[in-house]
Design a protein around this nucleic acid. Structure first.
Lengths: 138, 138
DNA sequence: CTTTACTCCGTACCATTGTACGGGGTTTAT
DNA sequence: ATAAACCCCGTACAATGGTACGGAGTAAAG
């Protein structure tokens, strides 16, 4: 209960999150992280913002846009948000995520087959094996 | 063995792949699909190019860049490519994909917990539950 | 109390991933 | 054989997600 309330200047925050200072300002402009109003002069960020930024970076690697990352970050239950509405949005996101997992699994399976065919001597000469990932199995 | 060799003009291809004609030309410039040299005048695309474009679109949704999509499409064994090199690259990609799946699974689990806490009456008031997805469990 | 490092803000610039435009040529249907 | 529809190419424009710049203020360290 001491480190929990530690705050950071923009430079420290950026360093902890592994991004550029300008990126933090950019995310702030876009409403992904809140501009801390407490301090006149320099901004003081809560330590949770570092995790938030890391989360944003992860979601980008996973094919979400900043807008979608924002939606994910805003999924939470509080007095202002009706539970049912949050649940609906959350369940939609779960579906989206499950689909991504599914698609990645297909790609992974195809890659594994390719890798195996590579190990064996029976060399595949398919023009482009990977595009078969999303073709129906006839 | 008839439809297999069917070819398409750029307009038909774009329609089948669900993209803009300009997007096809763009991918061609970027080397993601090959400019069919066979035809003087209008380009004639093999039917496999539609699947290729759909694959590219999928990979983008999954957080790959066009450059990475190209790398995936180029993973194949043929006389020009040494098996060992293909296997190495493929195994690297498999790791990448597995990591993505892993991260998505974490997000999904967090979302499911959120959804459940939403159903119950014991309402969570976490400021931003989702960022916990990537925090170590202490 | 001065230097050094950091922050503020606005604005300009950049890469990626397309989209649109427009003057011309080609194909197809009538 | 003429119109409608389509394609060619080069180039310009646009949205997203940053990055860089530069003059001015602020904080911290010696």
């Amino acid at each position: 209960m001491k480190n929990e309330n530690e705050t950071f200047t923009i430079g420290k925050l950026a360093e902890r999150a592994g991004v550029n200072v300008e990126t933090v300002r950019f995310y702030e402009r876009k409403g992904l992280i809140q501009k801390p109003q407490n301090s006149i002069g320099y901004r003081k960020y809560p330590n949770s913002d570092a995790a938030k930024i890391k989360f944003i970076k992860k979601t980008q690697e996973l094919g979400f846009t900043l807008k979608e990352a924002k939606e994910l970050l805003e999924l939470r239950v509080n007095k202002a948000a009706k539970c049912s509405s949050v649940k609906n949005k959350t369940d939609l996101k779960i579906k989206e995520v499950a689909e991504k997992i599914n698609d990645l699994q297909k790609i992974k399976n195809t890659l594994i087959k390719l890798s195996e065919s590579c190990s064996n001597k029976d060399v595949s000469v398919t023009e482009c094996p990977i595009i078969e990932s999303f073709e129906e199995i006839k």
